[in-house]
Simulated assay, not measured.
Amino acid sequence: MNDRYSSAQILLHWLSALLVICTLSLPYAQDWLADWLGGTGGVFTLHKSLGLTILLVTSLRLLVRARHGAPQLLADDARWQRTAAKLAHAALYVLLLSMPLSGLLFGKRPLELFWLLTIDPLAVSDTTRALARQYHLTAKYLLFALILGHAGMALWHHYRLRDGVLRAMLPRRS
């Protein structure tokens, strides 16, 4: 039984974490970053570009996970914990895939992907745009809660249970 995630899984996990933190922070830091990024439009160009990068990285993560699986880190008598962890991870993956897609759906202007490539807005009804926008803004709070819970449980396993769950997702020390 493997007690660690693969190197690719670890890299993609921490890359995802960095991208999500940056993407979620950008709208809150727009006053500070607007001058540096050419105005508030530049802040949202970066926000949307990072969001699409999250979509790509999450898709890649799912492919790598399908190939490598996940280590069984919890004891057999902790079935409820395994179930809760699987549900929380599934919810995180759903949000990491659906939030960039909902962002694409409600955008009315062309998206400048990292100022290199223009993606035209999708042709959808105003009702669909409104629903996508509401989903995007509401899902943000669910994502905040899941991230806090995910990090909190990792720390609880590491410091309270000392069971190696967090170490399984940390790079190996040389």
Rank of each mutant, 00 (worst) to 15 (best):
M1L: 06
M1G: 14
N2V: 03
D3L: 12
Y5K: 01
A8M: 03
I10S: 01
I10D: 04
L11I: 08
L12Q: 02
L12S: 06
W14I: 04
L15H: 02
L19N: 14
I21W: 10
C22G: 15
T23N: 15
S25L: 08
L26S: 10
P27K: 08
A29M: 14
D31C: 06
D31V: 12
W32T: 14
W32D: 11
L33Y: 15
D35I: 01
D35C: 06
W36C: 06
L37T: 07
L37M: 09
G39M: 03
G41T: 11
G41W: 09
G41Q: 12
V43L: 03
V43M: 02
F44W: 13
L46G: 08
K48F: 02
S49I: 08
L50A: 10
G51E: 02
T53N: 03
T53M: 10
L56S: 10
V57F: 07
S59L: 15
S59N: 11
L62G: 14
L62I: 14
V64C: 06
R65L: 05
R65S: 10
R65M: 07
R67A: 15
P71H: 07
L73W: 01
D76V: 10
R79V: 13
R82I: 02
T83E: 02
T83W: 04
A84Y: 09
A84R: 11
A85M: 07
A85F: 04
A85L: 05
A88Y: 02
A91V: 06
A91L: 15
A91S: 15
L92C: 00
L92S: 00
Y93A: 02
V94S: 03
V94G: 03
M99T: 08
P100Y: 05
P100H: 10
P100M: 08
L101C: 12
L104I: 02
G107W: 00
P110R: 01
L111E: 02
L111G: 01
E112T: 13
E112W: 13
L113W: 13
F114V: 03
L116D: 04
L116R: 10
L117W: 14
D120L: 11
P121K: 11
A123C: 03
S125P: 09
S125K: 12
T127I: 11
A130E: 14
A130T: 14
A132W: 00
L137T: 14
A139Q: 01
K140P: 02
L143P: 03
L143Q: 06
L146C: 07
G149A: 11
H150K: 00
H150S: 00
A151G: 12
G152N: 07
A154Y: 00
A154E: 01
L155K: 05
H158I: 03
H158N: 09
R160E: 08
L161H: 14
L161N: 13
D163H: 02
V165F: 00
L166S: 08
L166Q: 09
A168E: 05
R173E: 11
R173C: 09
